[in-house]
Amino acid sequence: MSGVLLEVENYSGAFWSPTNELVPVLHQVSYRLKTGAMTAVVGETGSGKSLVALSIFGIQPAAFVCTSGRILYRDTDLLGIDEKEMRSLRGAEISMVFQDARAALNPVFTVGRQLADVYQLQHGGGRSAAMAKAIEALRQVSIPEPERRARQYPHEFSGGMAQRAMIAMAALTCRPSLLILDEPTTGLDVTIQSDIMELIVELSRQRGLTTCLITHDLGVVAEICDEVVVMNAGRVVETGTTEAIFTAPTETYTRRLLAASQLLEAAA
């Protein structure tokens, strides 16, 4: 269980500015995702958490240029493979829930159809079997009346329901080895959030799923994550086990981050 499934190694990159200059945003980012573990990536907004995740998934923005580094997935450098190879990994091996769930769903197809399409693509089989799987997945993420909800379009879902549909797609319809969750539960009330996190923890145990959870919610991190990566301004400032990060942080930035969340708690 202590193997490493994915390793980001000295990953640096920059954006082309409107004035055609390269503006660096990621600086020698390195972190590891241990097989079967749940790793949190935390840090301030704009620190590059999503950008690294998008790079792992092979969909970094067009204006982004990688200037150094490797992203090793089971010894394959994801930065070195072509789009066709990447496509065969997406969904089957690596799956992602995006920060903005509603925008990630296609507005012109029903939610059920999108889930069923993904299922068929991954597992083959007939149309109605795929739809049955889609409905089952929606049920597992606590969507009421999933049969009927499956026939609705994304705009008919509340923000939190769209997010749950994305989680159903990434974690259940697909059967990935690596699941990247970019703020998966921010739009959810805490009861459903807890249910979903429990579902993800259960999936990781059952299937040995490796998860990377990008979140601002340090409460969730303390409760369910094994490892933590702290990022600030395009750099990894500290990594460690959750216990170490929470009880003995070594970097000032980590301490500030923890203090800020506990302050809010104390004030509350």
């Binding site: 049920r139 606590s142 969507i143 009421p144 009346e145 009927r148 805490v190 009861t191 959030q193 807890s194 919610d217 340090l218 409460g219 969730v220 991190v221 303390a222 409760e223 959750t242 216990e243 929470f246 009880t247 923890l258 969340s261 506990q262 708690e265």
Partner: peptide, 24 residues
């Protein structure tokens, strides 16, 4: 159900049974 941002804090959830009801 609200999680707490501290290491080792366990909370006792009051759980609601069953499926979320539908608004239809």
């Amino acid at each position: 159900a609200a999680p707490v941002a501290q290491w080792g804090v366990k909370r006792t959830r009051v759980r609601l049974a069953g499926e979320i009801a539908s608004a239809i």
